[in-house]
Design a protein around this nucleic acid. Structure first.
Lengths: 221, 221
DNA sequence: TATCGTGTCGATACGCTGTATCGAGAAGGG
DNA sequence: CCCTTCTCGATACAGCGTATCGACACGATA
């Protein structure tokens, strides 16, 4: 039917860009979660079909890499200071950014941040720790520890925990499990779970890691 | 055609069990990765169709929960000792187990270990830290820090890093990026990346976290 | 023993995914 | 004005999770 065929000239619609594609994908992920990001839906948000995107990407993995790097670019550089202050700032801003884009944490556990913004983020981490003047090998260890702590904590934080809204049922299940008496220490501690805000817990744990790094200064192995 | 229809009596083939289903799924994940685990393929490995599994599961998520808990059950309890030794043992055995089932790390970042084995694992973590005699709140923070470190490190370790086999290209890309001079600290440190074995790095970073916990003893905030 | 309810099994189907293929059409150079 | 070249996107394919439902085997009842 003629009515369905596009009128000549309407074809070249709008020039896209990787940035536009990435932005559309991020908006979708923010609104409906990472699993809602499909090439079809991203393309639809841009008013086109899925195959159009293959002009800007080689695969969906490319899109996820772009999204990850875009988020890395949203994490601001720390104001210059001592190593501890810089690491604190980086960690805090990473947590804030992750809260804005919860799906970032999932990506964090899935792919390496090798884009320009991701490398810049790594550079900042290493630069902060390097201020300590540790030998290179210890510096790597320290950065690994901080990075692992950040990634791991955000992961655990953003997982639907016992305090989740519809987790009422999950919390009841937990209570029932603990009531069996098989987990005495858990039982003792479980009341604290909800009492501690994630911000505070994140900062507290980070201090533990930083203390450990500071203790590595003299001539540790 | 009659030939295709099963002869009566052949229907009730083999009684399955959640354990059997889980084992099949784990074998598949070990052999071909987590993304190869589909209800169709698991069912095929058991000589049946996908819908059969819904007698044992409500959804695929259930299967992933079962797999996660099964792995938690493979991590042995630490031999009794002081808090530091127990945490070290738990961390080491977690790393070993994760190496046997790399997909476990992915699940670790995706869902809570609320099964019986997962709770037992948590219990052991809390019990070890509880030996320190910290107030409940600090104990939670310390456990969070350790758990975050373990989860984060394994995540980063099992990501295909620059040392990956086909990563030759990725490594070249990294070298090119660093050669731009935009990442001076990265450039200084990058030679260390391959020099450090993951075992050693994991243990070293863990010591940093443990030092931090030990430092929290007196009367920290 | 014959019959009926009950519960399990799995074939079929639906809507979704990522992406390979390829024909149609616009853009630019001769 | 025609022909080449590149871009676009419709169509198609294999695979996914799972809802539906008819067919069958089993256990209890008459």
């Amino acid at each position: 039917m003629i009515w369905e065929r596009p009128e000549p000239g309407e074809r070249r619609a709008v020039r896209l860009s990787r940035e536009a594609v990435t932005a559309a994908a991020m908006a979708l992920a923010d609104a409906e979660g990472l699993e809602a990001v499909s090439l079809r839906r991203v393309a639809a948000a841009l008013g086109t079909g899925p195959m159009r995107l293959y002009g800007y990407l080689d695969s969906k993995d490319d899109l996820l890499d772009l999204m990850m790097d875009a988020v890395c670019g949203e994490i601001p550089p720390p104001p210059p200071g001592d190593w501890r202050g810089e690491l604190r700032a980086i960690a805090r801003d990473t947590q804030r950014t992750a809260r804005r884009h919860p799906w970032y944490v999932t990506l964090l556990g899935t792919r390496q941040p090798y884009g320009p913004n991701g490398l810049a983020y790594s550079e900042r981490l290493f630069a902060a720790v390097a201020r300590l003047g540790l030998p290179a090998r210890l510096t790597v260890h320290a950065v690994d520890a901080v990075r692992a702590y950040i990634a791991g904590f955000l992961q655990l934080e953003l997982l639907p925990g016992p305090e989740a809204e519809p987790g009422e049922e999950k919390l009841a299940y937990l209570a029932r499990s603990v009531a069996t008496g098989k987990y005495p220490t858990l039982a003792w501690i479980i009341a604290e779970f909800e009492a501690v805000g994630p911000e505070e817990a994140f900062a507290e744990g980070l201090e533990r890691v930083l203390d450990g790094i500071a203790a590595a200064r003299p001539g540790a192995p």
